[in-house]
Design a protein around this nucleic acid. Structure first.
Length: 472
DNA sequence: ATGTTC
């Protein structure tokens, strides 16, 4: 594929692909790692008519239909919505809770082991087999998000306000078109972690130099113990994604729409099919934010078992990296798809939730197991990328290739097993989660350097992992 | 990522 490119400096490249313009944000080291496949994929996405904007963040890598690390924007009035550019794990996102604990309070591995076991008791990775949360009406949750949860599951008022959205509003009449069987696992899966790259980590903060004031305003301090959660909408979103990928594929066929990639699915926002997907997608976002809320509720129970019932765990923030949101940009209503891309709004931006209007909100960026995660804040210059930054390190190689390349021994070494610095894991053997080892991912520090160098966001704190809980 | 199924 032939294309020309312009280097703007500031880790910003502009590529003229056959079907349109792609912006790439990466430092030169990361930029050089992008192969032909990600550009081919971008070009297929650029065939979707009337796109306003498309970009890759430095964590971009090949996904189904669309690369993970894509921001893609259409005008609401004549644009398209794509289940492929939302991704299969609708509403997948990050959440951080703070504590008053200091690193020294969990340095003892017996304490960390107790926390891991307590968390596993309250937060299953697959589904609950007991009758917990019988008073939660799952249809209320998918309609109203956090506001559909009984009050007793809201430990502090700020659990409802320090989130990207507490309720994603949509036309509830579309619930009539929910896939058959979608309710089957929903209740038993609320407040459960899931598998793959999803995790709960105990981390310790290192406040970035010169950022103590903002950190303090957010309730963060050096050496603080925090809990980072990465999970999504479980089977609810997966089922919706599958069903509507297939329905929209049929519609594309009937309209005679042709794309070289038959895994790239899209429909006009105004079409019946587009509207059905878009509305039901918001039910998955409500499930996802409520799922992370209930996971956090379980983590809080676990911490109280270990440290006493006086302990509170305020939420720092909860935000997503797989969705399509209606946002006003350039005085126009736009549909902003973020597939493995995180919104990072600057101080004062109107889209900020009230609690973070003045400072901008924390943008939560996970690393990989054994490497740091980051808490960042957006910059005004981020406007050039519709306020999107990376969603994490980004995969460097497939799960299969990772298992062939990396040994359990190497994985153990990267977790410093057997030393005082060991990062504890809930799994007895690392073999089952070998495809989640740090070697499967790009170097997160290079990704963060790319984002900072592009003036999209700044680092507020680095989060060092002390213990990790993973599903399979 | 997901539950189910060859």
């Amino acid at each position: 594929m032939e294309y020309s490119s312009v280097e703007h400096g500031n880790n910003h490249y502009e590529l003229e692909l056959p079907h349109g313009r792609l912006h790439v944000f990466a430092n030169s080291d990361v930029y050089q790692t992008f192969g032909a496949k990600v550009y081919e994929m971008a070009d297929n996405n650029l065939r979707i008519p009337r796109h306003v904007y498309m970009s890759y963040t430095p964590d971009a890598h090949v996904g189904v239909g669309t690369c993970i690390g894509t921001t893609a924007v259409w005008n609401m009035k004549d644009g398209f919505v794509s289940p492929s550019i939302v991704g299969v794990d609708i509403g997948c996102g990050m959440r951080v809770h703070t504590t008053t604990l200091h690193r020294r309070d969990i340095q003892d591995r017996a304490v960390r082991r107790a926390l891991i076991e307590a968390i596993e008791k309250y937060v299953p990775t697959k589904e609950r087999t007991n009758t917990h949360y019988a008073d939660i009406d799952i249809m209320n949750v998918v309609r109203h998000g956090l506001k559909g949860l009984p009050e007793k599951y809201v430990p502090q008022e700020q659990w409802l306000t320090h989130v990207e959205e507490s309720t994603f509003r949509f036309e509830h009449a579309y619930l009539e078109h929910l896939p058959a069987q979608i309710r089957k696992y929903a209740h038993g899966q609320l407040g459960t972690l899931g598998g793959g790259n999803h995790f709960i980590e105990l981390q310790v903060l290192e406040i970035e130099e010169g950022r103590a004031e903002l950190a303090a305003r957010w309730g963060l301090f050096d050496g603080q113990v925090v809990v980072m959660i990465h999970s999504g909408s479980r089977a609810w979103g997966a089922k919706l994604g599958q069903t509507y990928t297939s329905e929209l594929r049929d519609a594309m066929y009937s309209w005679g729409v042709d794309n070289p990639d038959r895994n790239l699915i899209y429909a006009p926002i105004a079409s019946r099919e587009g509207q059905t997907y878009l509305n039901l997608m918001y039910s998955a976002l409500n499930f996802a934010v409520s799922n992370r809320h209930m996971i956090a509720f379980g983590v809080r129970e676990a911490f109280r078992d270990v440290f006493g019932a006086g302990l509170e765990m305020p939420v720092l923030y909860d935000l997503m990296h797989n969705y399509a949101l209606k946002e006003a940009h350039r005085n126009q209503p736009m549909l902003v798809h973020r597939k493995g891309a995180t919104r990072a709004l600057p101080p004062g931006h109107y889209l900020n939730t009230a609690a973070y209007k003045e400072t901008g909100h924390p943008a939560l960026i996970p690393g990989s197991m054994g490497t740091s995660s980051y808490i960042m804040v957006g910059r005004e210059e981020g406007m050039k990328n519709f306020y999107s930054i990376c969603h994490g390190a980004g995969r460097a190689r497939s799960r299969k290739a990772t298992k062939e390349l990396v040994t359990v021994d190497q994985f153990e070494q990267s977790l410093m097993v057997g030393t005082d610095e060991e990062i504890l894991v809930n799994h007895r053997s690392l073999q089952t989660i070998l495809d989640e080892c740090p070697q499967a991912y790009k170097d997160v520090d290079q990704i963060i350097d790319s984002v900072v160098g592009a003036s999209l966001a700044d680092v507020v704190a680095k989060c060092k992992p002390m213990a990790a809980i993973k599903g399979v």
